[in-house]
């Protein structure tokens, strides 16, 4: 049974992630009064990329992107998708936090090898942005873990299914709002699209990827979209009893985030970090103090 789950959950994540990519292009097009590409466009792109011949800058260039994709795929195994969670008992929330590092680190190592300044600038922005949103995110997650007195994400989900969503429970309300404020930064979309700013730094870390490398990077991007939203749904919207409801919750969150993406321009990296360290951090900090008071 666990083996089936092991195969099923990354596969589902992949399908949902690719679907979200296509959906985002379609919805963005409709918002901008365009017809937009077919919803299967990312699949076509990936097929095209896999059949192209690309260049490699060295062993690490290849290994880094594999490492990054593997990190995202393993991370999916730790996330509960409705009731499916193949690696629930292997480290909990803390491992998830660390696994979230692997994907950017892999891309960073791989891109660093390509000796392209655009790539290096993109990576430096990525790490600064990550430091920016990790400050509120860690406060939020610690508030959750302190409130529910567990470090296992499966326990967090199951407690919420008994007692109601964390987002609407009073002690965690501010943390939830802070999470919503930083969600675009976690997903790397506008107004925080500083890393892959294609107009400024030629799509940053992706600048040297072509062919199969870019295909893997696209798949990784799809997975990271999935992970960012699934984490939010699990932590604050109470997970779900079955896959359909889980998917619907993710869809609602994703579409709302897309509206933000369509409406706002891109911030500069300093503005982004200043914003992230001001309002979301303040809310998360107050949320943490409320949790501590309630706990006593």
């Amino acid at each position: 049974m666990q083996m089936i789950e092991m195969i099923l959950s990354p596969l589902l994540a992949l399908i949902i992630g690719i679907f979200f990519l296509g959906l985002s292009r379609k919805i963005m097009a409709r918002i901008q009064w365009r017809y937009g590409p077919p919803i299967t466009q990312p699949v076509i792109d990936v097929i095209r990329l896999f059949s192209q011949k690309s260049v490699s800058h060295g062993k690490l260039f290849n290994l880094g992107i594999i490492f990054s994709l593997a990190g995202s795929l393993v991370l999916v195994l730790f996330l509960p998708l409705a009731q499916i969670c193949p690696l629930s008992g292997s480290g909990g929330m803390l491992v998830i936090l660390y696994m979230m590092l692997l994907a950017p680190l892999g891309i960073a190592l791989s891109g660093g090898e390509s000796a392209n300044p655009n790539t290096s600038i993109g990576i430096s922005r990525k790490f600064i942005l990550a430091l920016g949103y990790e400050v509120p995110l860690l406060l939020i997650l610690l508030a959750l873990m302190t409130h529910y007195k567990t470090i296992s994400i499966v326990h967090i989900v199951s407690i919420q299914q008994n007692t109601g969503w964390a987002f609407v429970s009073l002690p965690l309300l501010l943390s939830g709002i802070a999470y919503v404020l930083i969600l675009p930064a976690i997903l790397g979309i506008r107004p925080f699209e500083v890393v892959q700013a294609s107009q400024e730094i030629s799509s940053g870390p992706m600048a040297e990827y072509g062919g199969p490398f870019l295909a893997l990077a696209t798949i990784q991007h799809a997975l990271s979209l999935f992970i960012g939203i699934a984490l939010f749904v699990n932590l604050f919207l109470g997970g779900a009893g079955n896959l359909l409801i889980f998917f619907l919750k993710m869809l609602v969150v994703f579409v709302l985030v897309l509206f933000v993406n369509a409406a706002l321009p891109r911030l500069r990296i300093e503005q982004a970090v200043k914003y992230l360290w001001r309002w979301p951090t303040l809310l998360a900090f107050i949320g943490m103090i409320i949790v501590l008071i309630v706990r006593r």
């Binding site: 990329l49 896999f50 059949s51 192209q52 011949k53 690309s54 260049v55 490699s56 290849n62 992107i65 594999i66 994709l69 062919g211 199969p212 490398f213 295909a215 893997l216 798949i219």
Partner: peptide, 8 residues
């Protein structure tokens, strides 16, 4: 997956 495509 990386091996599916042509060799870089």
């Amino acid at each position: 997956m990386l091996k599916i495509g042509p060799k870089a």
